[in-house]
């Protein structure tokens, strides 16, 4: 085993044990691992943000050769630079507008002009709300209605299918009763309240199934970590 690989195993193994030490109680080893993780990841994501957002979406447009800086694939970088060089001037220099908005966001650091940061923030929120509205209406509203438009009596090859029929009735009934639960402008009383109660039962059954499924997935994560610790201990002996 190479020295680098051994070093990686030791660092990973020790940090894993430090994190697991929290199972006993909060202690200096856990604190060290926690602070290291938070600090390293914050710095890492800042660097990722610079190279995957600022360079390709802003600096690359304003100064295409910048795409080639530190690129691990010069041919690919050349292709991107060629495309960027083909841009019409208004698409290319139009990027100055988001640059200005970005700089306005940084005015939060200067108390006298910090009010300027509210403009780009308002734009971001407005844009997010507007674009998400159509997306959610499409995926969470219209697509869900379509998925629920199923026949209540199922005939397969000219024969009545009992299981499919029950399945479809449960789906349609479950959706309608769960929708009743999410009515806010009417008090949940009488038949309406009864239907809403059926709806919350439907939701809880679904949550129970999802819970079991995810816990199994988490156990597989734990097994993965134990496997890593096994590799580490195996390398020692």
């Amino acid at each position: 085993m190479e020295l680098v690989e051994i070093f990686r195993l030791w660092v990973g193994g020790l940090l894993t044990l430090m994190i697991f030490s929290f199972l006993y109680k909060d202690n200096p080893f856990y604190k060290f691992a926690e602070h290291l993780f938070v600090g390293v990841s914050a710095a890492y994501w800042m660097v990722v943000g610079f190279w995957t957002t600022l360079i390709p979406n802003l600096i690359g447009f304003l100064y295409p050769p910048s795409v080639g800086w530190f690129s691990s694939n010069p041919a690919e970088a050349q292709n991107v630079m060629n495309s960027l060089n083909e841009q019409t001037w208004y698409w290319q220099y139009g990027r100055i507008v988001p640059l200005i908005f970005g700089l306005m966001l940084l005015t939060r650091l200067l108390p006298k002009v910090s009010w300027m940061s509210r403009w780009p923030m308002a734009l971001i929120i407005g844009y997010a709300a507007g674009t998400n509205l159509t997306r959610y209406l499409q995926s969470d509203f219209i697509a869900q209605i379509k998925a629920t438009l199923i026949p209540l009596i199922v005939i397969v090859d000219g024969k009545f299918s009992l299981l499919d029929t029950i399945s479809n009735i449960v789906i349609v009934g479950g959706v309608l009763s769960a929708l009743v639960y999410f009515f806010f402008s009417k008090e949940h009383k009488g038949w309406f309240g009864g239907t809403a109660r059926v709806g919350i039962w439907v939701l809880m059954v679904a949550f129970g199934a999802a819970f079991g499924y995810t816990v199994m997935a988490r156990i597989s994560l734990l097994i993965g970590r134990m496997d890593f610790l096994g590799q580490w201990i195996g390398s020692v002996f």
Binding site: Q138, S139, F141, I142, A143, Q144, I145, K146, T148, L149, I150, P151, L152, I153, N168, V172, V175, L176, L179, V180, F182, F183
Partner: peptide, 28 residues
């Protein structure tokens, strides 16, 4: 939500008798 419930109810009934145009309206 009320409209959605109406659409689901009517659409399911129509699917039952083989009418599929309601499903096509909600095609995305």
């Amino acid at each position: 939500k009320l409209l959605m419930m109406g659409a689901v109810f009517v659409g399911s009934m129509l699917s039952w008798v083989g009418v599929e145009w309601v499903v096509r309206i909600f095609g995305v």
